[in-house]
């Protein structure tokens, strides 16, 4: 939490651990098709990894990975990817989020839906990650810390 609680072991451990958590989060996002997991859980794990860095190495240095001011814009971007997918199918003649109207060639109807799901899972994970980090940052800033 505070600078006094930092120690080198913790910093090193969390810096080593973070990429693995992030890798696992990506796996969770894309594994959503086959087993438990998906955009939300993956996004939350990505956020957790960043929060871990924020907690251990401090906000200044962990900002290199994810800037504070990015929070809501990236969150909005994630939601926009989602809504944009829906809007795209709508503009291409289908209903909102009717994935088989996606402009991807050589894919069957079911595969198009699969692709659409993947697309929005990416949007969801991006939004969730960014916003959760932003909430943390705002709480820290609002309470006068970090």
């Amino acid at each position: 939490m505070t600078s006094s609680s930092r120690n080198p072991i913790l910093i090193t451990a969390s810096r080593l651990l973070a990429p693995f958590i992030q890798l696992f989060a990506l796996y969770v996002i894309f594994h959503g098709h086959f087993g438990p997991g998906g955009g939300f859980q993956g996004g939350a794990m990505l956020a957790a990894s960043i929060l871990m860095l924020r907690l251990s190495v401090g906000a200044e240095r962990s900002e290199l990975k994810f800037r504070k001011s990015w929070g809501t814009p990236v969150g909005a971007l994630g939601a926009l990817i989602f809504a944009g997918t829906g809007l795209l199918t709508l503009l291409l003649g289908g209903r909102f989020l009717e994935y088989h109207f996606l402009p991807l060639p050589d894919l069957s109807r079911a595969e198009l839906h699969s692709a659409g799901i993947l697309l929005i899972e990416v949007g969801v994970s991006l939004a969730v990650m960014a916003v959760l980090v932003a909430i943390y940052d705002d709480i820290m800033e609002g309470s006068g810390g970090g």
Binding site: I135, D138, I139, G142, S143, G144
Partner: peptide
């Protein structure tokens, strides 16, 4: 809720 708590406490 957390945000409001912080704001109230402040």
């Amino acid at each position: 809720g957390f945000a409001l708590l912080i704001s109230i406490f402040r």
